[in-house]
């Protein structure tokens, strides 16, 4: 496929293998069963996935639970590495995956914002410039010096979304975070995502909400049992997904 622009994401024959067995082995298991003990019980969460993403594309990933959607996002975010093939991401990524993960309970909201933004690669200067914007977005002005652990879970997500969605990375990954938060905040999140897409960022959205997918995404990827079974315009992919989903019932 000859194109004018180079892809920002190139996924080539990517595969990730998981074992179905226990997550942690104790020393006894190692001694009794040896290293090969669990190898027999492996499965591919993703298998032979190929696609390119060009700058500015808005992509929605559909599929039922446990078919590899989140694993695919983690590969692109670089927090998981492929067992087969390659995932090449040419630019920085703002991952809205487990977004509250980086926050420290004992530190204040103010410290947490600076820390998380910095960890995701934002420069000190941009943090200073965007700090007020983030605080306003999260509606946290009154809680800046509150320890993070005293916030409600909704507030925690608000802070996290405010920070991560303001990273200056050209690729945004969103994994179901919009499911939490109240209506008013959801509306703000939608507006922010519209803004990002309009500004030419590349969006990667995992969602079970058809409305969200249609609203933001022009291209769809349909994953079934770890394989990419459809890749095309969003409405067509959604139709294919609905059809097969019906058929399975």
């Amino acid at each position: 496929m000859p194109t004018a622009t180079d892809p920002v994401i190139a996924v080539r024959g990517a595969g990730v293998r998981f074992s179905r067995g226990r997550r942690h082995r104790s020393l006894r298991d190692w001694v009794l069963r040896g290293e090969g003990g669990l190898r027999t019980d492996e499965f591919w969460a993703l298998r032979d996935v190929n696609f390119d993403v060009r700058p500015g594309e808005a992509i929605g990933v559909v599929g039922r639970n446990g078919q590899g959607k989140s694993t695919l996002l983690k590969l692109i975010a670089g927090v998981m590495l492929p067992d087969a093939g390659a995932v090449d991401v040419a630019t920085g990524v703002a991952p809205l995956i487990e977004i509250t993960g980086g926050f420290v309970n004992d530190l204040t909201v103010r410290d947490n914002i600076a820390l998380t933004a910095g960890l995701h690669g934002m420069s000190k200067q941009s943090i200073a410039e965007r700090f007020d914007e983030m605080v306003a977005f999260a509606e946290m002005a009154d809680f800046l010096d509150t320890p993070y652990k005293h916030l409600s879970s909704g507030m925690k997500v608000r802070v996290a979304f405010a920070v991560v969605s303001r990273l200056e990375e050209p690729i945004i990954l969103v994994d179901e975070v919009l499911a939490v938060g109240d209506k008013a905040f959801k509306r703000k999140c939608y507006a922010r995502m519209d803004e990002l897409v309009a500004a030419g960022r590349t969006l990667f959205l995992v969602s079970h909400s058809e409305g969200d997918l249609r609203r933001f995404c022009t291209r769809g990827l349909y994953l079934r049992q770890g394989r990419l079974v459809a890749d095309g315009p969003m409405p067509e992919v959604l139709a294919a997904y609905a059809e097969e989903d019906e058929g399975d019932k």
């Binding site: 180079d6 080539r12 067992d83 087969a84 093939g85 390659a86 090449d88 991401v89 920085g92």
Partner: peptide, 26 residues
Amino acid sequence: TTQAEVVELAGPRGGPLPAGSRAEGP
């Protein structure tokens, strides 16, 4: 083979590898 492929894919794109690239791993 995985590592070889990663390097190969990263190569032609050239230039300084940005922070998000998975190519430098191994």
